[in-house]
C-alpha cells in the first residue's frame, strides 16, 4: 500500500481539491445550461416564425455554432475578443459565454423540433371542444412539448458537463489543472501518481454524468408511451 500511487489521493486535502476542481466545471455547465434553456426556448420559438430573414439568421447562427468545435469557439472568445476589442474576459466568463451560445443553439433546435412535432389537429381539436387559445397552450400543447423536451434538456446537461472539461485549455484551474498541480507537487515522492489521479478523474466525471444520463433515459422511456 505504501508504494501505491493511490495514496497521493489521501495526502493532505488532495481529494477535496480534485472535487473542488470538478465543481468548477460543473458550476460553469449548470450556469450555461440554465441560460441556454431560457435563450434556447426563445430561439426555438423564433425559428418557427415564418419570416425569411429571421429564418436565415437563426439558421446561420445555428449552423455556425454547431459546426465549429467548441474549443475553437472558446479560443475565439478568449483570445479573439481580447485582441480585437480589448475586452479582457476571465477564462470562466468566456467559458460561460461560449457554452451558453452553444447550448442555446442546441436547445433552440430541440425546442423547434418539439414545437413542429405537435400536429396541427391538436390545436384544432382543442379549439373545437371550446378551449380558449390560452387553455389550448396550457393544457394541451405545453405538456406535450415538455414531455419531449425535458429528457433532451437533461441529456444536454451531461453533454455540457463533458464539454466544459475543455476549459482547462484556456487556463481555468479546474479538475485537470488541479490534478497536474498535485502530480507535479508529488513528482519525487509518488512518481506514478499520474496514473491514479487521472484514473480518479475519469471516474469522477463518470459518476457525475452517469446518474444524469440514467434519469434522462428513464424519463424518455416513461414519457414516450404517454
Amino acid at each position: 500500500m505504501q508504494n501505491l500511487g493511490i495514496r497521493v489521493l489521501f495526502m493532505g486535502n488532495n481529494f477535496a481539491r480534485l472535487l473542488g476542481g470538478l465543481w468548477i466545471t460543473i458550476r460553469i455547465s449548470l450556469i450555461a445550461v440554465a441560460l441556454s434553456i431560457v435563450f434556447g426556448i426563445l430561439l426555438g420559438m423564433l425559428m418557427t416564425v415564418k419570416n425569411p430573414i429571421t429564418k436565415a439568421l437563426t439558421k446561420i447562427y445555428l449552423e455556425f455554432i454547431r459546426i465549429m468545435p467548441q474549443l475553437v469557439l472558446l479560443f475565439l472568445v478568449f483570445f479573439g475578443l481580447t485582441k480585437s476589442f480589448g475586452i479582457n474576459l476571465s477564462g470562466e466568463v468566456s467559458a460561460v459565454i461560449v457554452f451558453t451560445l452553444w447550448g442555446t443553439a442546441e436547445m433552440g433546435d430541440l425546442v423547434r423540433g418539439a414545437l413542429i412535432s405537435i400536429p396541427k389537429h391538436q390545436y384544432e381539436s382543442g379549439a373545437a371542444i371550446g378551449l380558449t387559445k390560452w387553455q389550448v397552450y396550457c393544457y394541451i400543447i405545453i405538456p406535450q412539448i415538455l414531455a419531449r423536451l425535458v429528457p433532451l434538456a437533461i441529456n444536454l446537461t451531461t453533454r455540457m458537463i463533458k464539454t466544459t472539461s475543455l476549459v482547462a485549455l484556456i487556463g481555468v484551474v479546474e479538475v485537470l489543472k488541479v490534478a497536474q498541480q498535485i502530480i507535479e507537487a508529488n513528482r519525487y515522492t509518488v512518481p506514478d501518481s499520474a496514473l491514479w489521479i487521472y484514473g480518479t478523474i475519469f471516474f469522477l466525471y463518470f459518476f457525475a454524468c452517469w446518474p444524469i444520463s440514467l434519469v434522462a433515459k428513464r424519463l424518455e422511456k416513461k414519457w414516450k408511451t404517454a
Binding site: T163, L166, A168, C209, W210, S213
Partner: peptide
C-alpha cells in the same frame, strides 16, 4: 459519460 479530454489525459 466521460469527456475525450480526460480519456486522453
Amino acid at each position: 459519460n466521460t469527456p475525450l479530454l480526460v480519456q486522453l489525459f
